[in-house]
Nucleic acid binder design. Sequence first.
DNA 1: CAGAATCCGTTGCGATACTG
DNA 2: CAGTATCGCAACGGATTCTG
Lengths: 122, 122
Amino acid sequence: MGELDPDMFDPMCPSSALPFRIGDKWTGMVLLCLEGGPRRFTQLQVPLRAVTAKVLAETLRAMIRDGLVERTEFAENPPRVQYALTPLGRSLLPVIAALRAWTRAHLPELLAARAAAHEEAR
Amino acid sequence: MGELDPDMFDPMCPSSALPFRIGDKWTGMVLLCLEGGPRRFTQLQVPLRAVTAKVLAETLRAMIRDGLVERTEFAENPPRVQYALTPLGRSLLPVIAALRAWTRAHLPELLAARAAAHEEAR
DNA sequence: CAGAATCCGTTGCGATACTG
DNA sequence: CAGTATCGCAACGGATTCTG
């Protein structure tokens, strides 16, 4: 299991225009980051460098509370913490796949409609 | 095509705990309201009586802008306006079905985890 | 390393009142 | 009937600084 691709989330992609969201703003991306296996806090921060540590920690805590993610703390020095998907969290991956399928098929159409409406308003 | 069921959205259902959202807070419910055919503003307000007219109008405008809904105004007195799903809006219905399937299968588990975490915190 | 604490701006949303 | 206008607030999320 290698490192996460720093560019697995293209900052130029119009994801902010998506008509759906999983949990809070970053929950869906965290799920994708953990799809390939457990990760550490700093590993998540590589592709998610647009998120502050505070918000990432909040996101993870909410996911733990909802049983989507499991946190494991190792009594080492320096401290090491691992985040992994639970079966419940993993059950959301097919849902994400369905949302991405819709996005691939229809998001350009939505963006075109939005751009046209924007044009009209000038 | 009859009237919308006033109780098609149970105010006691834990939908606010859903880990996903379509568009803004009420977008998904509007899509469901329009699934059975075109509706008028006041018809939407029956099952969506928890939404103020302002917010419902904002929601509809955003959906129109994104090409999900088509608005038709009839030059009558009193005025009559009709909202209908576009093909693009209709393409979201299977997505909603997938989200509902996940909810039926897994939401109780999520709520249980949340309740357990809440218990733990006392 | 893995956060916590604090501060603060923006946005979403609701309540209320009014209108063509 | 089908909205708009105005107000206000609470929640979300970002920036910055600090810590075991």
